[in-house]
Amino acid sequence: MTIMVEKRQLVTPGTLLAEGNYVLGENTFLEDGKIYAARIGLFNSAGRVVSVVGLRGVYVPQVGDEVIGKVVDVGLYSWLMDIAAPYPGVIHASDVFDGSYNPQKDVLSEVFNVGDYVLAEVASFDRTKDPTLTTRGRGFGKISHGHIIEIVPVKLPRLIGKKGSMVNMLKQETGCQILIGQNGRVLVSGRNREDEALAIRAIRKIEAEAHTRGLTDRIRILLEEEKKKGDVDE
């Protein structure tokens, strides 16, 4: 019953984490009674659960996730979406037209066309079928303005912060609306380009330094500094 590495230590795949009666958390595996890291990341333990917080990796859809998808194809009965995952997403026409879809009358490309960004929720997904998305409910549908950037999805928790502390601070300091898709796409929309550019710079910094401590404070300082600079210019 021993843990071999310190909390928040950077571990590489194959690093021995613990031996004995522990519970496997994410990004770990068991071999000959020993627990190893399966991915590069930061070690974490809570109670008897040992896990690794990944630093790189793709988005794997989960039912209930809010994602930002991009239309890649318009079919007769559905749209094909790129959701920045190893699997393509599908929105069925019946989902948008409330079951009264008539392919002879209704034109799908008038609703979402190729290249449009759409906020949607993952309605179903398992190992055998590609995910289906739904745009029913609060605020879902086509995104009409703002900037969309992509970040590594495993770093989203850092962008959100404890109980949303990081993203709320970003919103406050830059005056931008920030909408986070679980697939790593982030919509930033502000009053002007400058505000958006500043928010994007901050998000990029969070992504690059997601594995370090005291990040919220450093981002706050960056934003305040930039604001001061802006005031002088005016």
Binding site: Y36, I40, G57
Partner: peptide, 11 residues
């Protein structure tokens, strides 16, 4: 592979 975040047993 490790840099891509692919889960693996060891290097």
């Amino acid at each position: 592979l490790a840099d891509a975040g692919v889960p693996m047993r060891d290097l």
